[in-house]
Amino acid sequence: MFCHPEVVQQQKLPPLVATLKSTAKDNAASFHFPGHNRGRVAPSSLTKLIGQRPFIHDLPELPELDNLFSPEESILEAQKQAAEVFGASETWFLVGGTTCGIQTAIMATCSPGDTLILPCNSHISATSTMVLTGVVPKYISPDYDCDWDIATAVSPSEASSK
């Protein structure tokens, strides 16, 4: 029996990646978040820099992609595989993006009145979570890479001075 090379490649991919790849091929219009619609409406400054390709598989939670809140297929299998890689008994993927992850991390590790050391360019959700939980921020400045025009790591000396 002859298998098309693309079918063979799909079989070697992790289940969630294979599902994303298959769904992206449909090239259907998306009226869901993320709102950049697979790069077609991403900021032009970004697509000029990295192109549209990175957005092709950035799809929203659609029925054909499984259900993040109650996974049964490719997401469940991906979570099991991630848990195995992490050496954890279970792993759950975020259902609320970066904001949800940052809120969860702060609320799980800090109590009211605790001090949290974080870089001054932190995601805005860190600030709102500290306000809601009574955690006190201590801001530090990350190093800056002038060639790339981005903030980079926090130096050990900067972190230890706080």
Rank of each mutant, 00 (worst) to 15 (best):
L16G: 06
Q11F: 00
F93I: 08
P60I: 07
M1I: 11
F86M: 11
A159E: 00
P119D: 06
L68I: 09
A28C: 00
S45H: 11
C3D: 15
S128G: 01
K12V: 08
T152A: 05
A82F: 05
D66W: 02
V41Q: 09
T99N: 15
Y139W: 10
R53H: 10
Q10E: 13
C100A: 15
D66K: 03
L59S: 06
V7F: 10
S111F: 12
H57M: 12
E77C: 03
G35L: 13
D145E: 05
V41A: 11
H32W: 13
I75G: 04
D114C: 07
I56Q: 07
P112E: 07
H57T: 13
S89Q: 12
F55L: 04
A18F: 04
V7Y: 09
I106K: 09
R40D: 09
V95G: 15
L46V: 15
L46G: 05
A24V: 05
L68C: 00
A105F: 10
I75L: 13
R53T: 01
Q10D: 14
P112L: 06
Q81M: 14
E61C: 03
A29R: 13
L65A: 01
V135T: 07
S70K: 13
V131L: 14
P54C: 00
I75Y: 05
S157F: 08
A29F: 11
P5N: 09
T115A: 08
F2K: 14
Q52C: 04
P142T: 02
T115F: 00
F31Y: 14
